[in-house]
Amino acid sequence: MVPTWHYLVLSAALLTIGIIGVLTRRNVIIILMSLELILNAVNINLVAFSRQLADVSGQIFAIFIITVAAAEAAVGLGILIAFFRNRDTVNADEIDLLKW
């Protein structure tokens, strides 16, 4: 039996990789993919604790997180397409219309 804290370490690794991706990449598509990595890290935690506590509520929470991830991807990619149509770029550091 793999102890629960090994799953927590895996989840922390995926979370950190996702955070690095969000903070350092310029392409908005890859930033959105890194967000999916972060949400997956949370889901691993929830399912691992659900296994340890023999309580199915953690898996229900994971289903809700997957729902939110789907909604976030749809809206985020819609915004990306609208932005690309206006400015012809997908780079996050060129989205500076409100900066001065």
Partner: peptide, 30 residues
């Protein structure tokens, strides 16, 4: 979700972005 991502990658023209540096300036702080 991944099919949605691949669709958007096809819709968006990435030729210019592919030739630019993939990381931004604050990568070492991050």
């Amino acid at each position: 979700i991944m099919v949605l991502f691949l669709f958007v990658i096809m819709l968006v023209k990435l030729d210019v972005a592919l030739r630019q540096p993939p990381f931004n300036q604050q990568w070492w702080v991050a």
